[in-house]
Amino acid sequence: MAIKVLVVDDSSFFRRRVTEILNQDPELEVIDTANNGKEAVEKAAKIKPDVITMDVEMPVLDGISAVKQIMKASPIPILMFSSLTHHGASATFDALDAGALDFLPKKFEDIARDKEEAIRLLQQKVKEIGRRRISRFSRPIAAPIEKQNLRKTSVASSSNDFNVQRKKTSDIRASGKKYKLVAIGTSTGGPVALQSILTQLPSNFPHPILLIQHMPAAFTPAFAIRLNTLCKIKVKEAENGETLKPGVAYLAPGGKQMLVEGRGAQKIRIYEDDGARVTYKPSVDITFASAAKSYNDSVLAVVLTGMGADGRDGARLLKQAGSKIWVQDEKTCVVYGMPQAVANAGLAEANIPLPDVATRIVREVGCG
């Protein structure tokens, strides 16, 4: 049965374009459109689509307000479309806080090599979020820390990759391993996941943190600023040549690759990657591989929600060097692709629900 989609945008041209693209895929069916947020709320309640694509800026009722009303009344997976501006990026993150699952720039060709790849990306994102159960997203999990109400329960994995019954986080002791770096890679659903983790880290966090999030270049500066405002640790967009410092999280710039180089006083290298061989810019694999070379066995790496398998090859190199790899569990992922690839390769030592990741990290590195 095809995934049913409601397309919402105040531009008739964009509604037609998105409808045509989605209907090219036999697994997708656009069953209706709406030209503002008010119509979207009404039609969502009436026709109950499996997925909604939603513009951020619209008349009558904007996309953020529409997301809030839809998630309160009857939660439905929502993919946001946003303009490539700082304001558009900030509004998009507000929509994710409100309960939207993922986003794309309105000019989504800007994050693909060609038109055909852009079409496939849109279709795949809609299918992936359309397959997820939405009930757990009815309450935003990415609100600022003082507003968080994260679940503290232990959830048994539905994946066959982990045969050991998961213990409660409070019962799990630190391994005693010594670390010098934490590295976190993610894609679809990542902004919400990263925000929920980073806002729980204490100001005395003892190591630098590398953040690799698949995201267009126009969005990473606004995302770094947002995180820095909400977090006790410092969060910034990584700059070429800067030395890694404890208690600072470095977000890889969109559209570029981030490496860590050197030993003892490791520095970040940011570079343009025009190679057709690498799909993701930034790439989790590339950053993880550089961390394995520079830090050897002193890395705690975490792979969160996301499509595809980026991070698996880099995690293998980290594992071979003696570092530790964790993944987010299937139940709390928006898309269980990247974590599953790492788990299926036998590289993950722990399979952790998102609400427990921060607590586990703090305990493992010895600052809580």
Rank of each mutant, 00 (worst) to 15 (best):
Ala100Met: 03
Leu101Tyr: 05
Asp102Asn: 11
Asp102Met: 03
Phe103Trp: 07
Leu104Arg: 01
Leu104Asp: 09
Pro105Glu: 07
Pro105Asn: 06
Pro105Leu: 07
Pro105His: 08
Lys106Ala: 07
Lys106Gln: 06
Lys106His: 03
Lys107Gln: 13
Phe108Glu: 03
Phe108Leu: 08
Asp110Thr: 15
Asp110Gly: 06
Asp110Arg: 09
Ile111Tyr: 01
Ile111Trp: 00
Ala112Leu: 05
Ala112Asn: 07
Ala112Gly: 10
Ala112Arg: 01
Ala112Glu: 02
Arg113Asn: 15
Arg113Thr: 15
Asp114Leu: 12
Asp114Thr: 12
Asp114Asn: 15
Lys115Thr: 14
Lys115His: 14
Glu116Arg: 11
Glu116His: 11
Glu116Gly: 11
Ala118Thr: 07
Ile119Ala: 04
Ile119Tyr: 09
Arg120Lys: 15
Leu121Pro: 09
Leu121Trp: 01
Leu121Gln: 10
Leu122Ser: 00
Leu122Ile: 02
Leu122Gln: 02
Gln123Asn: 07
Gln124Lys: 13
Gln124Phe: 08
Lys125Gln: 09
Lys125Trp: 07
Val126Cys: 15
Val126Phe: 11
Lys127Met: 06
Glu128Ala: 12
Ile129Tyr: 00
Ile129Arg: 03
Ile129Phe: 03
Ile129Met: 04
Ile129Asn: 02
Gly130Pro: 04
Arg132Gln: 15
Arg133Lys: 11
Arg133Leu: 09
Arg133Glu: 13
Ile134Cys: 01
Ser135Ala: 15
Ser135Ile: 05
Ser135Leu: 10
Ser135Arg: 08
Arg136Gly: 01
Arg136Val: 12
Arg136Lys: 14
Ser138Gly: 14
Ser138His: 08
Arg139Asp: 04
Pro140His: 03
Pro140Lys: 00
Pro140Cys: 02
Ile141Asn: 11
Ile141Ser: 12
Ala142Phe: 12
Ala143Asp: 11
Pro144Arg: 12
Pro144Tyr: 08
Pro144Ser: 14
Ile145Tyr: 05
Ile145Gly: 12
Ile145His: 10
Glu146Leu: 12
Glu146Ala: 05
Glu146Ile: 14
Glu146Cys: 09
Glu146Tyr: 11
Lys147Asn: 07
Lys147Glu: 15
Gln148Arg: 10
Gln148Phe: 01
Asn149Ala: 08
Arg151Thr: 02
Arg151Ile: 02
Arg151Leu: 06
Arg151Trp: 05
Arg151Lys: 14
Lys152Gln: 12
Lys152Glu: 10
Lys152Asn: 12
Thr153Leu: 13
Thr153Val: 13
Ser154Asp: 01
Ser154Glu: 01
Ser154Tyr: 05
Val155Ala: 12
Val155Trp: 09
Val155Ile: 15
Ala156Tyr: 09
Ala156Ile: 13
Ser157Leu: 06
Ser157Trp: 04
Ser157Gly: 08
Ser157Pro: 05
Ser157Ile: 04
Ser158Asp: 13
Ser158Tyr: 11
Ser158Glu: 15
Ser159Ile: 03
Ser159Asn: 08
